[in-house]
Design a protein around this nucleic acid. Sequence first.
RNA 1: GGCCCCGUAGCUCAGGUGGAUAGAGCAACGGAUUCCUAAUCCGUAGGUCAGAGGUUCGAAUCCUCUCGGGGUCACCA
Length: 655
Amino acid sequence: MPIRPSLHYIFCPPVLWRTPGELMHIEEIEAHLVKSKNAAITAADVDPQVAQDIALAPPPDPAMGDRGFPCFALARHLRKSPAIIATEIADFIRENLDDNDIISEVTTAGPYVNLRLNPARLSNIVLGQALLEKESFGSRSDRDDRKHFMVEFSAPNTNKPQHVGHVRNNLIGDAISRILSATGQRITPVNLINDRGIHICKSMLAYELFGNGETPASSGEKGDHLVGRYYVLFNQKITEEYSAWQKSDEAEARFQEWLDASESEGSRETFFAQYSDKFFNAESELGQQAREMLRKWEEGDPAVVELWKTMNAWVIAGFDETYERLGVSFEHVYLESQTYELGKSIVEEGLKADKFDKLPDGAIVCDLEKVGLEGQKVLLRGDGTSVYMTQDLGTAVTRFDEYDLDQMIYVVGDEQQYHFDVLFRILAFLRPELEGRLQHLAYGMVELPEGKMKSREGKVVDADDLLDEMEELARVAVGERYDDLDDEEIEHRARTIGLAALKYYILDFAPRTTVHFDPAQSIDFQGRTGPYCLYSYARISSIERRLQGWPELDEEKRTEALGSLHSELELALIRHLQQWPYTIELAAEQLSPSRITEYLFHLSKAFSTLYNDPQHRIVDIEGPRRDGLLYLSQAVQYTIGAGLQLLGIPTLNEM
RNA sequence: GGCCCCGUAGCUCAGGUGGAUAGAGCAACGGAUUCCUAAUCCGUAGGUCAGAGGUUCGAAUCCUCUCGGGGUCACCA
């Protein structure tokens, strides 16, 4: 994995253990290597830009060195073979090393130049920084180019409980907020609850018709689940109504009209499948009632508003419980019922500025050719009511104004990519200063073995059920290992382990990936998992207990201890820790928490390997190297803890 | 049909501006515990990176085409 020179990682300068003239930060090591490489290539009379473009990367085998780079690209400029150039460049670097340079060896392997770092120096710098920064190792608290990001995620509808798809959204949004925060940016995480609209009226109507006044209290059911049951019921009822209607003469007439008009050979099934929306809007009795309910809601009809308030309160209380269990939170929660009209004035303003057009029926549209796309987009209906786009335009502008934002990130499924493309273009068209300041973090859908989840049919993996199952599995696993734990401790461990398993599993997929989720066998506690990382962390705690705390040495003894780490397994861990700050940057740059899960597994794995190695049993080792190993373990623990923190996973000292 | 995403080991997935031998987990097979937690470790096996062209010293990665899967193209959200 090459280190990207474009990463502008800047550490807060540690105040301790600095010897004058010594390299002190991880970032300075990288910068020094890049400088040496660039100087040598430039000295060979090559354009500095060419030198800059050649990236340093760890060689395939650590035995070859810490960093290396190829010389192929120089052959063209120097008219010599890459291998000869590599030799000359290696010679130059070697001859120009400072006294006591951290680069301890320069070698070539054919056309590659490889640089080795002095292990004792590397160990002192990397571990020194980790031990100083502790749980915030790799994080920045501030930066010169600090920006204010708002991250919008979750955005549930109040007609049903949340499922795994929402869980993925919640976890990605939460982790990205934490990760960006760790890079020193200012983050405002927000939710936007979709609490109004025809889909909300569906569950309300079903409840009104069939609910018999039951409540979460009377039924003992969580509010969002109760409401979700009526949403499913509504869809059952309308499916029944539709099936019955399909046998009517009128339906037959519609079918014939379609056949004649389209000259298609489609079957009845295809026709009725695609006609269902029209049926809902034009023929359905239930559809008629739902629309009537929406109309009354918009008019402020007291009875409808009262029902709406009651049911939404149930759902939102249910959501709060789920968020609490998941450990995600928001700085501000927007309700669509309070924001859905925000965009109207902005659309009007665009019309006055001649950017939008008015259709004969009064609808205001944007000609998408003006923003580099085709077709047109309705921004406001002819009757003056708003559409999704209206509210998104309004909330975006309002947020930039109210929060003094630099960037806005929407965590929304990739099915809405086109919508956000259009939204961002129209926003930039209206407000040129917003150009490039909005991002859509699009993530793939979560699919079940039997296909897509269907909330309307209740074919979903429910978020609360999933959490329950994870905890139960963890409870069993804990129970198998200990028989002397009190219930409270078992519960605590089961909750943490179950949550770790779920979060790690979900976040280990790159966001773009469509997740194929098999509830029966997807989540494991073995191998590359959250519990695996927790386990490494807990083992280090057990070393601390066994050895009665971490060493506290003076600077000289400590330097000696850290400098005594020299085996391949020890150096492998130190090199992993060296990568940690860059890993956070990379995860932030790519908006991908999976960079963190990946890193944590590799780090935990490297630690487990050392831990199991007979030559590295700390209890069997004495003197400075024992202290060195203890410091190393402590640094690894800080880092695993820091990483899990970015994923929203709490740690355990015993599992 | 237009646009977007994807196709890598039996399964699920990684793979940074193109660089050295394409990785991991699970599953399979074989080992390791008088020991700091076996939710562990070590090893074996498993790949025409969908296919074909092209660019390049060098392609899983960039370009073109083909095939296959998904999404989207509403006055829904």
